[in-house]
Simulated assay, not measured.
Amino acid sequence: MTTGRYLAAGLLAATALPSAASAGVTVTGVSGDPGFLTGRIIYTPGGIGGNAGTTSADLSIGRMKFTGFDTATAAALAFNTYCIDIFNYVQNGTFDLQTFTLGNAVKEEQLKALLSNTAGLIGGAATLGGKKDISAAIQLAVWEIVNESGNNGYSLSGGLFQVSATHGSAATNARALAQGYLNSLGGWSAQPGFNFSMLSAVSPANNQRQILFAPVPEPGTWALLIAGFGAVGGAMRRRTRTRLAYA
């Protein structure tokens, strides 16, 4: 048995996606893409990873790649994800494709602005280290928007959700990039040409939900998916099952 802790992140170019008719996907594998950085997140009310007493966690942070198949057609799927919830585990399972909603219209628009304005940054980075910094930074910014109280003045150094400035490889470049993205939100708006939808867990019911972010594409091409609601940056492999705790 191996145990790792992953912070799911991820804008990705997906090779396929469930059809509108099936509206479902089964995930059979999770890996890092382009790879993970390490860091410590803090959420003072507690509840990280489903444990009410857990207020901080050391995690691997970065874009995740999901592989699996369309539940109706059995067609193979591959796509990247960003987590937007720190209270559940990411694990293999079956999901329904649904309308994207956070229950907070302002935060929804902020996430759309963040993701559409940073959509090309990972692919445009010249080095693997740069790609990891950017993917981790986007993930940290996503978590801050979703988990912080209020709709503005986001800071990774204060408030309910914080990121340590001293722990792990994400504490320097990625953390600074993330704060820069958050500081830019006031001047950003969602860019045209993208669709957003959400994968909601069916089985297991305590699995994460995922937000799908896809360019209005050429037919057959899906890109940029964000894993949401409940991936809590930790991956635990037990026999054949992978559990990723999103934080």
Rank of each mutant, 00 (worst) to 15 (best):
Thr3Gly: 00
Gly4Ser: 11
Gly4Phe: 09
Tyr6Glu: 06
Ala8Phe: 06
Ala9Arg: 08
Leu11Met: 10
Leu11His: 11
Leu12Arg: 10
Ala13His: 12
Ala20Pro: 08
Ala20Met: 04
Ala21His: 06
Ser22Gly: 14
Val25Ala: 15
Val25Phe: 15
Val27Pro: 02
Val27Arg: 05
Val27Gln: 03
Val27Trp: 02
Thr28Leu: 12
Val30Leu: 10
Asp33Tyr: 12
Asp33Leu: 10
Pro34Ala: 09
Pro34Glu: 08
Phe36Glu: 04
Phe36Lys: 07
Ile41Ser: 04
Thr44Phe: 07
Pro45Ala: 05
Pro45Thr: 10
Pro45Ser: 07
Gly46Asp: 02
Gly46Gln: 05
Gly46Leu: 01
Ile48Gly: 03
Gly49Trp: 04
Gly50Lys: 02
Asn51Cys: 08
Thr55Gln: 11
Thr55His: 05
Leu59Ser: 05
Ser60Phe: 09
Gly62Phe: 00
Met64Lys: 05
Gly68Cys: 06
Gly68His: 07
Phe69Met: 05
Thr71Ala: 13
Thr73Trp: 07
Thr73Arg: 10
Thr73Ser: 15
Ala74Leu: 13
Ala76Gln: 14
Leu77Asn: 07
Phe79His: 11
Phe79Glu: 09
Phe79Pro: 02
Asn80Thr: 15
Cys83Trp: 05
Ile86Met: 12
Asn88Pro: 00
Gln91Glu: 15
Thr94Glu: 09
Phe95Pro: 07
Leu97Ala: 15
Thr101Trp: 02
Asn104Pro: 02
Glu108Ile: 03
Leu111Thr: 00
Ala113Asp: 02
Leu114Gly: 08
Leu115Pro: 02
Asn117Lys: 08
Ala119Glu: 11
Leu121Ala: 07
Gly124Met: 04
Ala126Ile: 08
Thr127Asn: 03
Leu128Met: 06
Gly130Asn: 03
Gly130Pro: 01
Gly130Met: 03
Lys131Gly: 01
Asp133Leu: 02
Ile134His: 00
Ile134Ala: 02
Ser135Pro: 00
Ala136Trp: 03
Ile138Glu: 04
Gln139Leu: 07
Ala141Gln: 03
Val142Thr: 10
Glu144Leu: 04
Ile145Arg: 06
Asn147Pro: 04
Asn151Gln: 08
Gly153Ile: 04
Gly153Ser: 09
Ser155Ile: 01
Ser157Leu: 12
Ser157Cys: 04
Ser157Lys: 09
Gly159Phe: 05
Gly159Asn: 07
Phe161Pro: 02
Phe161Met: 10
Val163Tyr: 10
His167Gln: 14
Ser169Gly: 08
Ala170Gly: 06
Ala170Cys: 09
Ala171Met: 05
Asn173Val: 09
Leu177Asp: 00
Leu177Pro: 00
Leu177Gln: 01
Gln179Asp: 04
Gln179Cys: 03
Gln179Thr: 02
Gln179Pro: 01
Leu182Glu: 03
Asn183Ile: 01
Asn183Ser: 13
Ser184Ala: 15
Ser184Thr: 10
Ser184Gly: 12
Gly186Lys: 12
Trp188Tyr: 13
Trp188Asp: 01
Gly193Met: 11
Ser197Cys: 04
Met198Thr: 12
Ser200Ala: 15
Pro204Gly: 10
Gln208Val: 06
Arg209Gly: 15
Leu212Asn: 11
Leu212Ser: 13
Leu212Asp: 06
Glu218His: 09
Pro219Gln: 12
Thr221Val: 13
Trp222Ile: 03
Leu225Ser: 14
Gly230Pro: 05
Ala231Arg: 09
Ala235Pro: 06
Thr242Pro: 01
Arg243Cys: 10
